[in-house]
Design a protein around this nucleic acid. Structure first.
Length: 477
RNA sequence: CGGGGUGUAGCGCAGUUGGUAGCGCACCGUGUUUGGGACGCGGGGGUCGGCGGUUCGAGUCCGCCCACCCCGACCA
C-alpha cells in the first residue's frame, strides 16, 4: 500500500523515479547489488511490451529460439572489438559442481558469439538464407552504477540475430527492425523517438554501424531505447559463418543484431509519468480501466455492486480491474490507481445507478476537466474511444514536450547552454575528437545522426570545419 | 575504483552525560466511516549491519569489516 505524496519531478527527478518504481510495485531491489526483482505489475507491463514486439517480429518473418546462458570465454575473444567492448563488464563462472572449469564460462552479456557459432554449423548454402531468429532472454553486464530498469546487472530483453547473403540485405534488415522499434515506441508506447545512426564512439562493440531510437525523458535527458546493428561480416569472419552462393563460391554471411530491453519500461515511466505517479499508455497498460464502486451503507452497496458487475461484463474486451477493497476509501483508491498509471477510472455510485450512467476519469487529464459522465448505452464503444484519446493525447503531449526542448544552437557557447535543459541539434564534422571534447566540457554525448536529414552542408559546431550531417547532442542515461 | 552519506520494527526516523529501545506510517482485530489520500479503541512485531575491544553495564565510546544509497570514470 502506498504512503502519501511522491517527491516531485522538479524537486528531485531521480528520487521521483526511484520512489515511483517501488511504490507502483513495478520492481524492487534484489538482495544482490544492482539487481532487481520485477514485480507482477511491472512484469505485466513488460509482457505487453513483449507481445507488441513479438507480433511485429513474426509479421516480418522472424522465429523465436533459445540459446544458452553460458558462453565459452574463448568465443568472446574471437571478435577483437567485441571483447574489448565487453570484457570490463563480464560475469565469469570459473567453478562448476565444485570443480574448477577447464574453460571459464561467461554469463552472456549478449549472444552474437554463441549464435554465430551455431549459425556456422547451420548455414551451408544460399538456400539456408536468410536466417531470422529472435530470442527472449536475460543477460548480465557488470555495470558500475545501476538504476532500476534503466541499468541493472541483469536485465531482460529480446535479441534478434539474422544472417544474410548480401550486404544490402543485411542493411535492409537492420533498418527494417529499427523501423519496427520506432513503430512500436510511437504507436504502442506513445513514446516519440528519433531514428538515427550512432557515431563510431557510441556504436555497439563489433558492429559495422549501429542505429538507435532515442527518446527524451521528462528531465530532458536522452534514453537509448532500442538498437539495431549492422554487423557487416565481422562476426561471420570471426565464427566462419559461410555459405555457397549460386555460382558455387564460398562467401561470408552478412549479419545483424537488434535488441530492446526492460530499459524501455523506464522510458515509459519517464516519458509519461507526472507528479501523481505513472501514466501508462492504454495499449500497454496491464490494467486499462479500474472500476471503483462507491456506497455508504448496505442498501447502496446492494444497489451498486450488481451494476459494477454488469459494467465489467460489458467491458470484457478491455483489461478491467474492479477495486472491491473494503478497507480503504474511494478517495484513497483514486490516488492509488493514479499513482499506478491506470489510464481510465470508472466511478460507480448510487447517483450513477439511478441515472444509468457511470463517471469516467482520464489519468492524463487530472481533476475535474478529465471527468465525464458516460451513459450505459454503447458503453464499450465510448470507453474504446476514450482510451484511444488518452493514447493519442499522450503521444501528442510527449512529442510537444520533446520538440520544445530541442534547440539548434547558434554556436558552441549556445550549445553548452541548451544541453543543460534539452537537446542540441547541430552540425558535426564527424570527428571523434570534437565529440570527446564536447562530452568532456558539457557531459552531452552524440545521441544519433538522424536518418531524416534535411541535407545541405554546414560547419561543425565545435571546430568549424565543413560538416555534412547534423547530430543530436544530449546528456543521456 | 575515487569522493560523500547511511545502517535501530516492513518503510521513514528519534534515542540526552553509557543504565537494557521508542515515535509516525504500514500490518492484525474491532466498531463507526466511504463521490478525492477517514477515525476511535485494542494488538503483534527488534540477535539496534557484523565481529572484536573498553566497561559492573554498549544502540550510545574505540577498532576492524560488511552492505546499501548518492556524486564521478563505463553502458541497453
Amino acid at each position: 500500500m502506498s504512503e502519501e505524496k511522491l517527491p516531485t519531478r522538479a524537486e528531485n527527478y531521480s528520487e521521483w523515479y526511484n520512489t515511483l518504481v517501488q511504490r507502483a510495485e513495478l520492481a524492487d531491489y534484489a538482495p544482490v547489488r544492482g539487481c532487481m526483482v520485477v514485480r507482477p505489475y511491472g512484469w505485466a507491463l513488460w509482457e505487453n511490451i513483449q507481445s507488441a514486439l513479438d507480433r511485429r517480429f513474426k509479421a516480418t518473418g522472424h522465429v523465436n529460439a533459445a540459446f544458452p546462458l553460458f558462453i565459452p570465454m574463448s568465443f568472446l575473444e574471437k571478435e577483437k572489438e567485441h571483447v574489448e567492448g565487453f570484457s570490463p563488464e563480464l560475469a565469469v563462472v570459473t567453478i562448476g559442481g565444485g570443480e574448477t572449469l577447464e574453460e571459464p564460462l561467461v554469463v552472456r552479456p549478449t549472444s552474437e558469439t554463441i549464435i554465430g557459432h551455431m549459425y556456422s554449423k547451420w548455414i551451408k548454402s544460399y538456400r539456408d538464407l536468410p536466417v531470422l531468429i529472435n530470442q527472449w532472454a536475460n543477460v548480465v553486464r557488470w555495470e558500475m552504477r545501476t538504476r532500476l530498469f534503466l541499468r541493472t546487472l541483469e536485465f531482460y530483453w529480446q535479441e534478434g540475430h539474422t544472417a544474410h547473403a548480401t550486404a544490402a540485405e543485411a542493411e535492409e534488415e537492420t533498418i527494417r527492425m529499427l523501423n519496427q522499434y520506432a513503430d512500436f515506441a510511437i504507436n504502442d508506447a506513445a513514446v516519440p523517438v528519433i531514428r538515427g545512426r550512432k557515431s563510431t564512439t557510441e556504436k555497439f562493440a563489433g558492429a559495422q554501424h549501429s542505429y538507435t531510437i532515442e527518446a527524451m525523458m521528462g528531465d530532458t535527458r536522452a534514453l537509448q531505447s532500442g538498437t539495431s546493428h549492422n554487423l557487416g561480416q565481422n562476426f561471420a569472419k570471426a565464427f566462419e559463418i559461410r555459405f555457397l552462393d549460386e555460382s558455387n563460391t564460398l562467401q561470408y554471411c552478412w549479419t545483424t543484431s537488434w535488441g530492446l530491453s526492460t530499459r524501455f519500461v523506464g522510458a515509459i515511466i519517464m516519458t509519461h509519468g507526472d507528479d501523481q505517479g505513472l501514466v501508462l499508455p492504454p495499449r500497454l497498460a496491464p490494467i486499462q480501466l479500474v472500476i471503483v464502486p462507491i456506497y455508504r451503507n448496505d442498501e447502496e452497496k446492494s444497489a451498486v455492486l450488481p451494476v459494477v458487475e454488469q459494467v465489467k461484463g460489458l467491458l470484457s474486451e478491455f483489461r478491467v480491474k474492479v477495486d472491491d477493497r473494503t478497507e480503504v476509501t474511494p478517495g484513497f483508491k483514486f490516488n492509488d490507481w493514479e499513482m499506478r498509471g491506470v489510464p481510465l477510472r470508472l466511478e460507480i455510485g448510487p447517483k450513477d445507478v439511478e441515472k444509468h450512467s457511470v463517471m469516467a476519469a482520464r489519468r492524463d487529464i487530472p481533476g475535474k476537466p478529465g471527468k465525464s459522465i458516460l451513459s450505459m448505452e454503447n458503453l464499450a464503444a465510448q470507453i474504446g474511444s476514450l482510451l484511444d484519446e488518452v493514447q493519442a493525447g499522450l503521444l501528442t503531449k510527449a512529442t510537444r514536450f520533446r520538440d520544445e526542448h530541442i534547440f539548434e544552437p547558434r554556436d558552441y557557447g549556445h550549445l553548452k547552454e541548451v544541453v543543460q535543459n534539452g537537446w542540441a541539434y547541430a552540425w558535426w564534422c564527424g570527428s571523434a575528437d570534437c565529440e570527446a571534447k564536447i562530452k568532456e566540457e558539457t557531459k552531452a554525448t552524440t545521441r544519433c545522426i538522424p536518418l531524416d536529414q534535411e541535407g545541405g552542408k554546414g560547419k561543425c559546431i565545435y571546430c568549424g570545419q565543413p560538416a555534412d550531417e547534423k547530430v543530436y547532442f544530449a546528456r543521456a542515461y
